[in-house]
Simulated assay, not measured.
Amino acid sequence: MSATDKAREVWDKAAPAYDRQIVFLERVWFTGAREWIGERARGRVLEVAVGTGRNLPFYSSEATVSGIELSPVMLAQARRKATELGRTVDLREGDAEHLPYGESSFDTVVCALSLCTILEPRAAIAEMRRVLVPGGRLLLVDHIGSSWPPVRAAQWLLERVTIATAGEHFTRRQRPLVVAAGFDIVESERVKAGSIERIHAVKLG
C-alpha cells in the first residue's frame, strides 16, 4: 500500500466520527478559524483538503467554491453539506500534491487544518501557487509547533504516535515553505501558546 493509499484509508475510517470529534477542538483550540477564512476568501475559491465541508457555511454567497479531497467518504459528507446549504460546489476526489486544475484558475486557495497531514507540504504549496492568479490569496490555518517549550515537547511526544498511525504532524510550520514558494505574507498570527497559525499570503509575480 502506498503512503497516499494509507492516508486515504485513515481518513475514510475517521470520516464518520470526524464532525462530532472536532467540534470541541474548534471551540477551544481552533477558535474562530473558519470565520477568519470566510471573511478573507474572495472570487473563485479552491479549498484543498475540503474534508467534510466544515468551511462551506462560512464562504460568501458571492464566492464560487471548489474543493478537492483525498478521502471519498469525507467528500460524500461535504457533498451532503453543500446540498443542505443549497450551494453549488465543485467537489472532486484527488490529492493536494497534484491538483487537477490549470494555472491561474483561482483567486483564493484555502487549506485548513490539513497541511499537518499532507504527505509533501512543499509540493502541495507549490501546487496551490500554480493554480492561483498573480496576486491571488492563500489562506492557511493549521496547528504547528508551539512557541512555548513545554507544549512543544508534548507535541513532539504525541507525534511519535500520530505520525505512524495517521500521518499527522504537530511540530511542522508552514510559513517558511509559503515564503520559499514565492508568496508575500500579508497577515500572520500565532495563537493558543503559538500552536495555531493563521496565514494570509499573496502570490508574487
Results as ranks from 00 to 15, higher is better:
Tyr59Arg: 08
Val178Tyr: 03
Leu25His: 12
Gly135Gln: 07
Gln21Asn: 13
Thr4Ala: 08
Arg122Asn: 09
Ser147Thr: 13
Phe106Tyr: 12
Met128Val: 02
Trp36Arg: 02
Trp156Met: 13
Phe30Gly: 00
Ala15Val: 05
Pro150His: 15
Ser105His: 06
Thr88Gln: 09
Val161Asn: 09
Glu168Leu: 12
Ala76Asp: 08
Ala33Asn: 05
Pro72Tyr: 08
Leu157Phe: 15
Arg40Met: 02
Gly53His: 06
Thr117Asn: 10
Leu85Arg: 15
Ala78Tyr: 03
Leu158Tyr: 13
Gln21Ser: 07
Ala124Ser: 10
Arg122Gly: 12
Ser60Tyr: 02
Thr64Cys: 10
Pro16Ile: 04
Val65Asn: 09
Ser147Leu: 07
Gly51His: 00
Glu62Ser: 15
Leu139Cys: 09
Ala96Trp: 00
Ala154Thr: 14
Ala63Val: 06
Trp29Glu: 01
Ala154Ser: 15
Val23Gly: 11
Ala78Glu: 12
Pro121Ala: 09
Thr117Gln: 07
Ser66Glu: 05
Thr88Ser: 06
Arg54Met: 08
Cys111Ile: 06
His169Glu: 04
Arg54Asp: 06
Ala96Val: 04
Leu99Val: 05
Ala49Thr: 09
Val65Met: 12
Phe30Tyr: 14
Glu69Val: 11
Gly167Phe: 03
Gly94Ile: 00
Ser146Cys: 07
Ala7Ile: 04
Val28Asn: 09
Arg34Ser: 09
Ala14Glu: 10
Gly67Trp: 11
Val45Lys: 03
Ile163Asp: 08
Leu46Asp: 11
Arg160Gln: 15
Tyr101Ala: 12
Tyr101Arg: 09
Asp107Cys: 10
Cys116Gly: 13
Asp142Phe: 01
Gly102Thr: 10
Arg20Val: 08
Leu46Trp: 03
Phe58Ala: 11
Phe24Gly: 02
Leu158Pro: 02
Asp142Ala: 03
Trp36Gly: 01
Gly53Ala: 10
His169Val: 08
Lys192His: 07
Thr165Gln: 10
Gly94Trp: 01
Arg8Asp: 00
Leu85Val: 11
Pro57Asn: 13
Gln155Ser: 03
Glu189Gly: 10
Thr162Met: 10
Lys192Gln: 04
Ala78Met: 09
Glu69Cys: 11
Trp36Gln: 00
Thr108Leu: 09
Arg190Ile: 02
Gly43Tyr: 13
Ser195Val: 05
Ile163Gln: 15
Gly145Thr: 04
Thr83His: 15
Leu99Ala: 00
Leu138His: 01
Glu39Arg: 14
Thr64Lys: 11
Ala3Phe: 01
Asp184Lys: 02
Arg122Phe: 05
His143Ser: 06
Arg160Phe: 14
Lys81Cys: 12
Leu115Cys: 09
Asp95His: 05
Pro149Tyr: 08
Val186Leu: 12
Thr88Met: 06
Ser2Pro: 07
Leu115Ala: 07
Phe58Thr: 05
Ala193Arg: 12
Ala181Lys: 02
Ala154Trp: 14
Arg129Lys: 13
Gly182Phe: 09
Ala63Leu: 04
Arg42Val: 15
Met128Leu: 02
Gly136Asp: 07
Gly94Tyr: 01
Ile37Trp: 00
Asp95Met: 03
Pro72Val: 03
Ser61Phe: 13
Leu70Gly: 00
Ala3Leu: 13
Glu39His: 14
Ala201Cys: 10
Lys81Leu: 14
Gly136Ile: 08
Arg130Glu: 14
